[in-house]
Design a protein around this nucleic acid. Structure first.
Lengths: 202, 202
DNA sequence: GTCATCATGTAAGCCGTTACATGATTGC
DNA sequence: GCAATCATGTAACGGCTTACATGATGAC
């Protein structure tokens, strides 16, 4: 799930690791702050698998004389085996062609979790889906929510719940209803749009 | 968090492990189904620490002659070192005095996660809190939500988000608003109640 | 020149899931 | 008698957080 999120961000533009955390929060709705202890290993793994690559950021070091490496400069230089670290020691990542393919399959994967976090993230990346795939995703989510609503409703009326527990259940139901209403506006939006690339529409 | 949930259920009445999973879903709002691979080890640990104990469920085995253990009966008997397993092989757990104390501290612990799942669970167990502690919990939660709402609002208006990502953010904001409104009804309910034990009110 | 922030990374551990293994009870 | 479900447990693994370690940059 982190992989998908990171690849999704890199679909938009290049990022370095430190930046990704904030973007995961601000661009996709990922709460709360994914830790760096998850992000950096993920980036390393994605790079090993050829899904992303480190690019040469315009570096202040590159403008310095390439020959003279002596004294305190050497320690910094030694951490750049193939011209990796640019300004401020950043490692800027770019998604590869292979990465784009992987992103597409991950995003469209029907075997993905039906939880709200997973869905929100996918929806935040929905511009990369075909109109058809978007509608599928929305309808699938709607079905899940309707089923869930039935369960919660059934439970909240029947049981020997005290006032507080019942209130929690009823509020949960309200939340699901709000979600469904949202999905419905998105769905009607999909149907009304001319889909400027009139490919798989209708 | 699982410990708190399990102890909370056992505050209501005795349960066996298999039953706990369903109750976690139906009594507290815990989605989705906690796995047995988490529940049984948790119960074992709670028992080791003296927070819960296995009680003798009225057993069909107990009514059989205690002396003659031969043939295929022995294998079943061998799994009941101190009269643990009752009807259907169930192990019924009861919370101990120590467990109740631990439950109280866990439930009131201010250093608990401010995530929605943790709060929902605590709220579903709120009948075990003093009126004062309940109000504290609610006000704390309200503050968190208001702060969060500001962040989400700020983010959803300013950024270079596409239609879908923005919609996700706006819906997130709606969800938080719904939560706040819910908290407010609960808070006003707390203030209007005579608190039949007029102890720490006002 | 020093402090906050930016920036990258590793290691340990927590808390849960999935998969497996086993057997009893109930309904048909 | 057979299947579905009830019931308990273990082992392996996954993904994330916390804590640690290090150092550069920018602001004042």
């Amino acid at each position: 799930m982190l992989d998908l999120a990171i690849l999704g961000l890199l679909m938009g533009r290049d990022h370095h690791g430190y930046e990704i955390r904030a973007q995961l929060r601000d661009q996709l709705g990922l709460w709360s702050n994914v830790s760096f202890g998850a992000i950096y290993p993920a980036l390393a793994r994605l790079e090993r698998n050829g899904l992303v690559e480190v690019i040469d950021e315009p570096s202040i070091m590159d403008s310095l004389s390439t020959g003279s490496l002596s004294g305190e400069r050497a320690s910094l230089r030694s951490r750049r085996p193939a011209g990796g670290l640019g300004r401020k020691g950043r490692k800027v990542y770019r998604i590869t062609t292979l990465g784009r393919e992987r992103f597409a399959t991950l995003l469209a994967d029907p075997a993905a979790g039906d939880d709200s976090k997973s869905f929100s993230m996918r929806m935040a990346l929905a511009k990369y889906l075909s109109s058809h795939a978007r509608v599928s995703l929305l309808e699938q989510r709607r079905n899940d929510l309707v089923a869930r609503l039935r369960e919660v409703r059934a439970n909240s009326t029947n049981q020997e719940l005290d006032t507080y527990a019942r209130s929690v259940m009823e509020h949960a139901a309200s939340g699901v209803e709000l979600d469904i209403a949202w999905i419905d506006t998105l769905l009607s939006g999909e149907r009304n749009q001319p889909t400027h690339l009139a490919a798989e529409a209708n």
